[in-house]
Design a binder for these strands. Structure first.
Lengths: 233, 233
DNA sequence: CAATAATGAGAGCAGTGCTCTTGTTCTTCT
DNA sequence: AGAAGAACAAGAGCACTGCTCTCATTATTG
């Protein structure tokens, strides 16, 4: 049954994968704005209407690419985390994750733009993207959690967060990063957004004429300062 | 001469302004991706080809909107800076600038997306946008400069930057923010990118389900920590 | 083997950016 | 003042897009 039924299903999977692959190629070549279903179909030797059997609309194709991209950065971040020993200095582990995100982004700028640039289709990010979108921040949180177990997690720099922020951070920690104190969780969320801002500036060329020569050093240095800022020793 | 010649020139200015105005309206309504020259022309009661007398292409229209948006955020930041007294605590002045940027972004999400989202046209941001794009970071730098004159500028948190970063930061400071030490300048650039990341997360809905209730408090708190991080007392 | 569902092909619709040509109006120079 | 020139608006048209139909073909199921 799986064999016979699998024939069509496998074909479907293969065609779906081929479409995404070609779409990614064209994405890398011309950007999301100019990604055209017809061009993808043409390149694949199929007619454009056939493509709608696999993706109900252009935006759905884009959403699929977004999900894949989230998974890819997330995997890169997690791989970087497992590549560095558990008992390494937390700041090193933190830096490794950040560098992995940056490296992936620089290697796949258009895909990175897809997930952390302007939401292309309508305006709000589709719901399917919230799950895979958490892998990077969870990797960052994992560093803090491990540091805490080793007694290498201190207080975040600066004033403690005001009540409401602390309360919400504690809720968030309870759900996604058990054990982490509220202030650390708040600092962590902020660091996540800051990391994305930092990477985005580099990928989207906003640092052109500002940081030109020592980009990797600048990034590493900044990200290390962030580690200390969160409370990692 | 100015009167007669001015007739056409003024008409041109007015039509140009009307086009941009209508384009901004449609931008706010449907986003940059769906901004159509024909729709703008239609709404203005003119034929689409006539619009090309004013903007050589759709991308040029977008670029014009980008420049305007940069100026608008920049002005908001500068206005916020002049609204708070010169001798106020530097951290307060810093926070005021950051809050102004955030407020503008939340009020004009699509325009903000235009300047800090994916570069829509090709991939690199047009050259005309580098000038107006510096007003926000310069406002941040101004806070640090004023703090230095009052003796309220300390060392940035964390390790000092490595040689190349410090050198490049000093060059940058010499050109754009005379008097600022290299480490502060490096921290400043990082903070700028981090601020944009933070605002972008909120505007683009990436904080949905993460930071939900105490957004303003969270932002203010984070931005205050950043001020201390840069060295502002 | 017959009924059913999935797939592909093609035509077609409404919309897009952009170009070219044609007539008209304003500006400038003699 | 009148002629030459530029700026402009309008329309037709091209190549392209996303998407929806209809119709034939194929594979899967009863």
């Amino acid at each position: 049954m799986t064999a016979i039924q699998g024939a069509r299903e496998r074909a479907r999977r293969e065609v779906t994968a081929a479409i995404k692959e070609e779409a990614r190629r064209r994405l890398a070549a011309e950007g999301a704005a100019k990604l055209s279903l017809r061009a993808v179909a043409r390149e694949l030797g199929m007619v454009s209407s056939a493509l709608y059997r696999y993706f109900p609309s252009r935006d759905d194709l884009l959403t699929a690419l977004i999900v894949d991209a989230y998974d890819a950065v997330g995997e890169a971040a997690e791989a970087a985390l497992t590549a560095v020993p558990d008992d390494a200095p937390p700041a090193d582990r933190w830096t490794a994750v950040c560098l992995a995100v940056r490296a992936w982004a620089l290697a796949h700028p258009h895909e990175y733009a897809l997930i952390h640039g302007t939401p292309v289709p309508g305006y709000a990010a589709p719901r399917d993207t919230v799950g895979p979108g958490t892998r990077v921040p969870l990797a960052l949180a994992a560093v803090a959690q491990r540091a805490r177990l080793s007694g290498l997690l201190g207080e975040p720099a600066g004033d403690p967060p005001p009540g409401p922020v602390r309360a919400e951070a504690e809720e968030l920690a309870a759900e996604h990063a058990p054990g982490l104190p509220g202030p650390v969780m708040a600092a962590l969320v902020a660091s996540w957004a800051q990391l994305i801002g930092l990477v985005g500036f580099e990928v989207f060329g906003q640092f052109n004429g500002v940081v030109v020569a020592a980009r990797t050093e600048f990034f590493t240095h900044t990200v290390r300062r962030m580690a200390g800022d969160v409370g990692l020793r």
